[in-house]
């Protein structure tokens, strides 16, 4: 696809969607990014389309198989595969034990698959929720509840609002060209979380702090819809940063926050 990147012409819809779906070549992606730097209108369209994509992913997950259904399907898959695998000519002497072993194997597969499904499902939903919150901070135009670069203003604001506390590093302990911009109280999986807003150069970074729980445990480094999602834990907290800044700089910010907890 040849991009239309003239500053006077807005991005065609198909090109815009191919961009957010990561379907453009690197040169086309670069051309679109250049256009976005100078076109506020297309920038908003991109953010809106990404929000819609994230919302679609979350809404569509409503129809999930119940654990019982999943167990039946797993057992069916196992039975079918076993039948295909079963050598017909030789019958083992322990044939009478076969149903028992099959049942044990099926139980193991069932349990493993359910645990895998459950973890994977939770992880995907949380990542989508975090990305949605991050996109909301980029797009809403609404100021966060606390606008301050001073950690002595930001941290006390959360007192009484969160069931946990956290520390913020001195400005000098943050990575180069990284600034605290403000904070907000948000809810993730119906639990309160601190949203800290930083900028690294011109990139916005959302850092979510929650009380440590398996609910908020993510892979240390993932990408979702072109955003880097880096996660870390401390003895008391789960900490997740979302941004389009390069992964090394995001890592440095996460490390500086972990260090002061």
């Amino acid at each position: 696809m040849t991009p239309t990147t003239s500053p006077d012409t807005h991005l065609p819809s198909q090109q815009l969607h191919a961009f957010i779906d990561g379907e453009l070549s690197s040169s086309d992606t670069q051309a679109v990014q250049q256009h976005l730097e100078s076109c506020h209108s297309c920038g908003l369209r991109v953010i809106s389309a990404m929000q819609l994509k994230a919302a679609t992913a979350r809404a569509a997950q409503r129809f999930t198989a119940s654990p019982e259904t999943l167990a039946r399907l797993t057992a069916y898959l196992h039975t079918q595969s076993t039948e295909q695998k079963q050598p017909t000519p030789i019958r083992p002497r322990t044939f009478h034990m076969l149903p028992v072993w099959s049942a044990i194997a099926a139980m193991i597969v069932l349990t493993a698959s359910f645990v895998f499904w459950n973890q994977n499902h939770q992880t995907n939903t949380l990542t989508a929720e975090l990305l949605d919150q991050h996109l909301a901070t980029l797009s809403s135009g609404a100021a966060p509840q606390v606008i301050s670069t001073d950690r002595h203003t930001v941290k006390p604001w959360f007192q009484g609002r969160l069931p946990f506390s956290f520390n913020l590093p001195e400005p000098g302990a943050l990575p180069p060209d990284t600034t605290l911009q403000g904070a907000d109280l948000v809810y993730l999986k119906n639990r309160p979380a601190a949203l800290l807003l930083f900028t690294i150069h011109k990139h916005q970074v959302s850092v979510f702090l929650t009380q440590k729980s398996e609910l908020f445990t993510l892979n240390p480094k993932t990408t979702h819809s072109g955003f880097n999602v880096h996660s870390a834990t401390t003895p008391e907290l789960n900490l997740t940063a979302v941004s389009d800044v390069n992964p090394a700089e995001l890592d440095a910010l996460v490390a500086s926050l972990v260090k002061v907890q």
Binding site: T69, S81, K85, S113, F116, W117
Partner: peptide, 20 residues
């Protein structure tokens, strides 16, 4: 035998998505 085993390995994680 190998094919059925690898099929099961590949298909198992897809069951929730296929169902949905």
């Amino acid at each position: 035998l190998q094919s059925a085993a690898s099929f099961e390995q590949l298909a198992l994680p897809l069951l929730p998505s296929l169902y949905s």
